[in-house]
Amino acid sequence: MSDYSLNEVASRAKLAAKGAGYSWGMAEEVSRGVFWLISRGLPAANVLVQLLSSFNKNENVNSAVPQSIGNELLPTLQWLCPFAAGCALTESHDSLAADMRLSVSSVKYPLLIVPFIADLAARSSAYVHLTLDAAEPAHNTNALSSGRSSSCMSGSVITNGCAVHFSDPMLLHSVFVSRINCRLATDSEIEALNDHRTHQTPRVCVSHSDWLALDEFAQRTYAPATAASRVLGAGAELNDND
């Protein structure tokens, strides 16, 4: 594990996301989400690497999106990207009303949706409760088989936009949840958050292999150098003796 600054990891996450096929605007969401998580000591870099590595020709950033905007999001194909789902689920709402229920089905790497719920909680000046349900959806096929096992588990998350609490640390590494339900938290649930204060951290540890994986995705955004671009592109000489 190596020690990194928060901005360094968030910047790398943005480029990695762009390299993996997201638009620049979605790559910014990835960066924003990763920053929120790592500044709370949560393993977003590792989980992001897993997400980006799980895309392939058929299941890519463009297909892992919701069918439509609404309070109940369903995937267009097999599963939902947590960033696409997070944006679609929360951006339509200026705040979360007491009687409002939001849900999203078939989400991979649910840790990465939490920053968007946190945004909604902050906008609502309220505590928001998430239930993560690991039960396998009826329509699921072999597409998710690699993610099954202990990585698919149930639990809950509560956040007020700043602090966050996961009912089970294993949830951080959850690969897939069949459904996430979102509503305002009850008083007793709020107590659970207050019992587990989130400590913000100024630094982040990332494993060498995760950093290399992010770098590999990021490299796809860099133009290969040519002799002409080396001279013309930067508009300067290569030697500065004067």
Binding site: Y22, S23, W24, G25, M26, E28, E29, N62, V65, P66, S68, I69, A84, C87, A88, E91, S92
Partner: peptide, 18 residues
């Protein structure tokens, strides 16, 4: 129509919307 629905169809404009 709201911006969230627009962006679901047009993620390429998300940077500029922001």
């Amino acid at each position: 129509a709201n911006v969230a629905a627009f962006l679901l169809m047009h993620p390429e404009h998300r940077h500029m919307v922001r």
